[in-house]
Design a protein around this nucleic acid. Structure first.
Lengths: 235, 235
DNA sequence: AAAACATATTTGTACGACAAATGACAAGTT
DNA sequence: AACTTGTCATTTGTCGTACAAATATGTTTT
């Protein structure tokens, strides 16, 4: 850990350290942080660097600063819960089960909607990209090859939605979920189990059938739920 | 404008100025920004303040900085499109029609899902809050009273989802949409036209019927589409 | 008791100096 | 000539100090 921390810039480290403390609950909402001067010496960085970090945290809605009063941890209602860092910090902290449930709920809402949007608005080149990824999945012989092709498939679908808001949301939720789920032993041995689902999604997008695409994705999610095992990823 | 700008902190102004330039397209992805020193004098602020702003913009994914190379505008694919500031800047710039369409698409995905979630997981006190807001809407006699009660209704539903990811998303999308739509003259005169829809949503949540709640919300969205006029708000 | 004022504390802003990284270029080597 | 090596200049990264602006708190005044 130590060498990795050394490579990243100081303010990045400070942002992460304070951000994690807040999101993990070590610092409670309403708590007053030490003054900038004290906090800077405490973390062994200059006030300049500390302030750069604080501004970023304020931009994420985690803290608020007022002159004379100092800094306070804001109520979670004001946090940018969809910020990639905030999500990552929540994943890093020991999250409650219901947080994972919330992520799963988001995926269940977004993914069917995304493939439906792709079915409506995909352009020829984008369909081709999805098809190419699907082909790579079919021809994959190892778990790694499959994983790479699967990632390409999802990215291609994302691009085909032609809605960067949707793909942005999709991206952060998937990244957070990826922290928690690993393939079960059964799935690892039969890693192509989801291929028919992917093909169904592809076909629905090719034929421009939004409803069918959404249904296929819902089936895929339901199936994958049964095949996933919860637990922190080793890597 | 001038007095308002004076009240906000310098870095906030710098963040907004550069952020808008990027999001509006005045600065193209890949473009190199002037060095910190030059940019600071150009904007008449200290390098300290400028850097605080740049760190925030980097956190939003708008720029990336590397030593020796300087700063570059990142590809939009890396932007935090769901960041409240980024969305606000896009709204402030002259947005293309299809951006508004994307926002509307997001709303069509989220709102039915949100009321369905509220129907599944609302707690008694939360239902009561929704009911109180609905009552206020029924008893409102002016457009202002209606607007306030309507806002409370939406906030109460949001809280009742018990999923801060969902409510966070809901919040930023609604805020962005609020920039674009104003009530049409016809709607203003008959501002209670949406009351039956609200009541239907409330009833579905009360009876814990997710599907009915989603359907009622979809009907409400479809109806409001016909009654909204596109255009920038005057305020 | 209430209002006006003074003060101390905390964040906001500015400036100057040096460290670290790194692209560019020159020199040297094969 | 092509490639490697090393120096150098430029740009961001970090630090420390000093002062300005705002504002809670306590004090004085009315």
């Amino acid at each position: 850990m130590a060498p990795r921390a050394a490579t990243r810039s100081l303010h990045a480290q400070v942002i992460e350290e304070i951000g994690e403390s807040i999101v993990s609950g070590a610092l409670q909402p309403g708590d007053a942080l030490p003054g900038e001067a004290q906090l800077a010496t405490q973390m062994a960085v200059s006030r300049t660097v500390l302030r750069e970090a604080l501004k970023v945290l304020a931009a994420k809605g985690l803290i608020e600063t007022r002159q004379k009063t100092g800094m306070r941890v804001r109520d979670p209602r004001h946090w940018n819960h969809l910020d990639a860092d905030v999500l990552a910090w929540r994943c890093a902290a020991m999250p409650t089960d219901d947080f994972v449930d919330k992520l799963v709920e988001m995926r269940a809402i977004i993914e069917p909607a995304a493939v439906a949007a792709a079915a409506r608005r995909r352009e020829p080149a984008q369909l081709e990209a999805i098809g190419a990824a699907l082909e790579a999945m079919e021809e994959s012989t190892t778990l790694d090859e499959w994983a790479v092709a699967d990632l390409h498939f999802h990215e291609a679908v994302l691009a085909a939605t032609n809605n960067e808001l949707l793909s942005s949301l999709f991206g952060v939720i998937e990244a957070a979920l990826g922290t928690f789920f690993v393939m079960s032993a059964r799935t690892a041995k039969n890693f192509k189990y989801a291929l028919p689902h992917h093909r169904a999604v592809y076909e629905a997008i090719r034929r421009r059938r939004p409803n069918e695409a959404a249904a296929a994705m819902q089936a895929m999610i339901a199936d994958s739920r049964a095949n996933m095992r919860k637990g922190k990823k080793s890597g």
